[in-house]
Design a protein around this nucleic acid. Structure first.
Lengths: 218, 218
DNA sequence: CGCGTAGTGTAGCCTACATTACACAAAATT
DNA sequence: AATTTTGTGTAATGTAGGCTACACTACGCG
């Protein structure tokens, strides 16, 4: 089994308890993403993480608590990447392309797709849970991009009268692919374009329509 | 098993058996959409539909079979509406607006949103099921619109070098709203535009970028 | 040491279904 | 009406899995 032999790691111990906690969190996240929340039993999680059922209950109240902890623990890096991109600055058209790349890349990860499935499954049972994820993941990104658009508009580097509307559309263009995948699985790809083409066409559409500065000569 | 239908029924009775079947199908569909496939028990379904558990098993093999029957029975009218629209003809820009309206309208129905949830929940467990829905609902619509775009392109009424790509983008613009709703629930609407604005902006974007004939003067 | 706290492994309780069995009632058929 | 066919109500049956209890172990600290 998991021969813990003589645990010689007494020095750099980042707290015994915390390590167990993270192991369980990771195992649970992996399994939930792979097979769905309902389909995974707590015993399975413990089997993968090591430790015991009792400890799991000690650390997280119950199954729902475990899911909550996963979310609380998870880093939704997208808006941070967007922040970094904005901080780096540049020509609007290029920044837009950068945003598209970030969105499509992040949403292409199987983990993200799996997470979408989990959230969707729980939305009916616990709207509060959906809200937490919504505010932690979706809203921050939307806000960043909306501000960016508003800035461009204010400074005359683009013509975007309704930034929120534009952001919604831009999300539609880029994120729809991953959402289809979450719904239908891999077979959805049969009708879907590869990421690079998506990035190119979506930015072309936007720069053209919203007169975003920096577009190559038509 | 099903006796030969030699017996001529009395009145307009659409077959006793068939009526029970439909009642069960409807009850099941409603409940699945409202609360999710897993969360609904067969007894509940019977309670709503009338009839008995035994009959349910007689008609549909088991719970999965019931779900399958719902799908087989369901009319995915979207592509038919699109066909009708195409048959009606018209200026490309106006037809595009019509397509947008059809898509957004269909995907705004709570039933569609619920169905998306159900499909997504089952995709992991049974990819074949996802495939069936995919081919019955999504693919036909995509194909219709792609042909339409290709026609416009061929006849010089638009410039759409890659119709499939364009269709994907158009779906993204229009359908993303419903998909967000499926994932996050109603609270997603906080960041989402109303349907009319979506229709207007999406068609404006497309007619402008793809030079679709019939756009109002810029 | 030797005690106490935390962690482990496991067995079992308990509930919620899916699925089946069966005894009965209502039609349909003759 | 008698018989056959079909549908109904309800009560098993079996199983999965969340959750709890508990006896046991490892280890830190005096």
């Amino acid at each position: 089994m998991r021969g813990s032999t003589t645990s010689s790691e007494k020095k750099d111990e980042p707290d015994r308890r915390e390590r167990r906690r993270l192991a369980m969190l990771n195992a649970a996240r992996e399994l939930f993403v792979e097979r769905g929340y309902d389909a995974v039993s707590l015993s399975e999680i413990v089997k993968r993480s090591g430790g015991s059922l009792a400890t799991l209950y000690e650390l997280f109240e119950n199954k729902a608590g475990l899911l909550g902890a996963i979310v609380a623990n998870k880093r939704f890096g997208t808006h941070e990447q967007i922040d970094a991109l904005i901080a780096r600055g540049g020509v609007p058209a290029e920044m837009l392309k950068g945003v598209a790349e970030i969105l499509i890349e992040n949403f292409s990860e199987p983990e993200t797709v799996g997470m979408i499935r989990v959230v969707m499954g729980e939305t009916l049972r616990d709207p509060g849970f959906a809200e937490a994820i919504f505010k932690a993941s979706h809203v921050p990104s939307v806000e960043r991009i909306a501000e960016l658009f508003a800035d461009w508009n204010a400074s005359g580097r683009a013509v975007i009268p309704d930034p929120m509307l534009a952001v919604h559309l831009f999300f539609g263009l880029t994120v729809h692919r991953a959402q289809n995948r979450a719904i239908f699985g891999e077979l959805a790809d049969a009708t879907q374009p590869p990421p690079e083409r998506l990035v190119a066409e979506a930015t072309a559409l936007f720069t053209s329509f919203y007169k975003i500065e920096g577009a190559e000569t038509t």
